Amino acid sequence: MKGDYRYVFLVSLLILVVLSACQPTEHETSGDQLVGKWEAIDDQHPHSVEFKEDGTVIVIENQQEFKAHYSFVNEDQIEVFTEPEEISDGTLIDIRFEEGFLHITDNGNETRYARLRINQ
């Protein structure tokens, strides 16, 4: 009887640890979640987007690679620069994370992305 409680306790503890590892920590910012490679899903123009920690963003579409730079305006918005910041104004893009997907809204058009990998 005593062993049964210990087993249930250990299994419950293991489930709790696994579930908490799947959720972002309260210290994980949008920047932490954004870094990595993402693939557009439910989009007419298949492409991938890779956000790097150094502020570089790479878009690959039709085997062509486009590089730009990004910075956070706030937790839900980034500014993307195709030229150095001193030369051109950036484009404001809304971002949000929902159920493991990245949603990017640009000029009123929303695209949903699935994570391909996390950059190390």
Rank of each mutant, 00 (worst) to 15 (best):
M1D: 09
M1N: 04
M1E: 08
K2W: 01
G3C: 08
G3W: 11
D4A: 11
Y5Q: 10
R6D: 06
R6E: 10
V8F: 12
F9M: 09
F9W: 11
L10C: 10
L10G: 00
V11H: 02
S12G: 14
L13Y: 12
L14H: 08
I15L: 15
V18H: 09
V18C: 12
L19C: 14
A21V: 06
A21C: 12
A21R: 10
C22F: 11
Q23P: 00
T25V: 02
E28Q: 15
E28V: 04
T29L: 05
L34K: 02
V35G: 10
K37M: 07
K37Q: 13
A40C: 07
I41L: 06
I41N: 07
D42E: 15
D43P: 00
V49N: 00
V49H: 01
E53Q: 14
G55L: 03
G55P: 06
G55K: 04
T56K: 09
V59L: 13
V59W: 05
I60E: 14
I60R: 11
E61Q: 15
Q64K: 15
E65L: 09
Y70S: 04
Y70W: 04
S71Q: 15
N74G: 10
E75V: 03
I78R: 03
E79W: 01
F81Y: 15
T82D: 11
T82N: 11
T82P: 00
E85S: 07
E85K: 15
I87W: 05
S88A: 10
G90W: 05
T91A: 05
L92H: 11
I93A: 01
I93W: 02
D94E: 14
D94A: 12
I95D: 03
R96Q: 12
R96A: 04
F97E: 04
E98D: 13
E99Y: 03
F101P: 00
L102I: 05
L102M: 08
I104F: 00
D106I: 01
N107A: 07
G108P: 03
N109V: 13
E110M: 13
Y113R: 02
R115V: 02
R115T: 00
L116C: 07
R117I: 06
I118T: 15
I118D: 11
I118F: 07
N119L: 15
N119E: 14
N119H: 04
